[in-house]
Amino acid sequence: MSYEELLTELSLADERFVVMTAENRALIRNLPQLLGKRFIDTGITEQTMIGAAAGLALRNRIPVVHALASFLSMRAFEFIRTDAGIPSLPVKLSAFIPGLLSDANGPTHQAIEDVSIMRGIPNMTVFAPADEDDMVKMMPEIWASPKPAYTRINTRKTSYVHAPFEPGKAEVIEQGTDVTILTYGLLFEQALIATEILKSEGLSVGLINMRSLKPVDEQAILKAVDQSELIVTLEDHFLTGGLYTIVAEVLLKHQKTAKVLPFALNEKWFKPALLPAVIEYEGFSGKQVAEVILGYQTNHIQPEILKPQFAE
């Protein structure tokens, strides 16, 4: 089942659903003719869309809004914070092409600080499916919640079949004593590859899909820290404010320390290209991740993306 098929099924069964978009219909092209007045395109007006969605939520509707992740999280930030977050209204934000999924676009269209921005809003929940199967299993629970929600939409198909979803719970794929990789969203694919490479080198490797970033599964993080010598965070997001920061917050809260090796974008936007080339260029491929982890295990060599960048 696709995102559109799921939303169609739920919307036709429950008249509280109102589907909205700021002139971004890529995920929902067939819904206007099916939903009639319950489909609203506000045009390129993300702020207006959020204000209208909040009004609908006050009237017992479930507005599911769609826009590019960069504009939804940044252009409409104040409206999301004030109209949806503070009153804790069930406005459901579907953020299209987040992170590296914006592959061929430049910095203006790259949402690589969105997790940090959205999880800072009171009452907001934040989710990042690993692929289409994960997303379809997650969305019914997300849309059923009375809280506002921001979801990094991910329609990529993989062969992995995910476990049922529970908000606030991570999906533990494997447990390991040498290394545990924590990841979310698009890079779950690469984490699977890295895991197999590391296992072939004789390491005991854990892998956790941190699909719920707020609320976050603190116990899954703490258990991984207790079991593994090294924790790796892998994310298509800025180093600041994303999963690396979340792990640091959890460790500090529980007065624990750990060896943590982060893979993230270190205060720079990624180079636009087709997705496979972006992943390779920025050092996020499964093979590259595995090589860096092996190098770190042997010599404590940090990945290039974390080394200081100096202008020439």
Results as ranks from 00 to 15, higher is better:
residue 21 T to S: 15
residue 57 A to N: 03
residue 56 L to Q: 09
residue 50 I to N: 04
residue 42 T to Y: 00
residue 32 P to E: 07
residue 41 D to P: 05
residue 11 S to A: 15
residue 30 N to K: 15
residue 56 L to S: 07
residue 31 L to V: 01
residue 44 I to N: 06
residue 23 E to R: 14
residue 17 F to G: 10
residue 67 A to G: 06
residue 49 M to I: 00
residue 22 A to V: 01
residue 21 T to I: 01
residue 50 I to C: 06
residue 27 L to W: 14
residue 24 N to F: 15
residue 23 E to S: 15
residue 47 Q to M: 08
residue 36 G to I: 03
residue 34 L to D: 03
residue 36 G to Y: 15
residue 51 G to N: 12
residue 59 R to I: 00
residue 24 N to V: 11
residue 35 L to K: 13
residue 67 A to K: 03
residue 29 R to A: 15
residue 65 V to G: 05
residue 49 M to S: 04
residue 26 A to I: 02
residue 33 Q to N: 13
residue 13 A to V: 02
residue 45 T to K: 13
residue 28 I to L: 07
residue 64 V to K: 04
residue 16 R to V: 01
residue 69 A to D: 02
residue 44 I to L: 12
residue 22 A to N: 06
residue 16 R to K: 14
residue 27 L to A: 13
residue 44 I to W: 05
residue 21 T to E: 04
residue 56 L to M: 14
residue 63 P to N: 03
residue 34 L to S: 06
residue 56 L to E: 06
residue 56 L to D: 05
residue 60 N to V: 00
residue 41 D to Q: 04
residue 64 V to Q: 05
residue 67 A to M: 08
residue 18 V to C: 12
residue 46 E to Q: 09
residue 24 N to Y: 13
residue 23 E to G: 11
residue 64 V to R: 05
residue 43 G to K: 01
residue 29 R to N: 11
residue 16 R to D: 12
residue 38 R to N: 10
residue 44 I to G: 06
residue 11 S to M: 12
residue 30 N to Y: 11
residue 27 L to T: 03
residue 31 L to P: 06
residue 15 E to T: 14
residue 35 L to A: 10
residue 66 H to P: 09
residue 46 E to F: 04
residue 61 R to I: 01
residue 28 I to R: 07
residue 29 R to Q: 14
residue 35 L to Q: 11
residue 37 K to E: 15
residue 30 N to P: 06
residue 14 D to L: 09
residue 25 R to P: 09
residue 10 L to V: 04
residue 47 Q to L: 02
residue 15 E to L: 13
residue 68 L to E: 08
residue 36 G to C: 14
residue 55 G to C: 04
residue 19 V to Y: 03
residue 17 F to N: 08
residue 46 E to H: 05
residue 40 I to V: 03
residue 61 R to Q: 14
residue 64 V to G: 05
residue 57 A to D: 01
residue 50 I to Q: 06
residue 23 E to N: 15
residue 18 V to P: 13
residue 25 R to Y: 08
residue 52 A to G: 09
residue 59 R to S: 13
residue 36 G to T: 04
residue 41 D to T: 01
residue 21 T to W: 10
residue 24 N to S: 13
residue 61 R to H: 15
residue 65 V to Q: 02
residue 13 A to I: 01
residue 37 K to M: 08
residue 59 R to C: 10
residue 47 Q to R: 09
residue 53 A to N: 10
residue 31 L to G: 09
residue 43 G to I: 00
residue 39 F to G: 07
residue 67 A to W: 02
residue 14 D to Q: 11
residue 31 L to A: 09
residue 31 L to C: 07
residue 23 E to I: 04
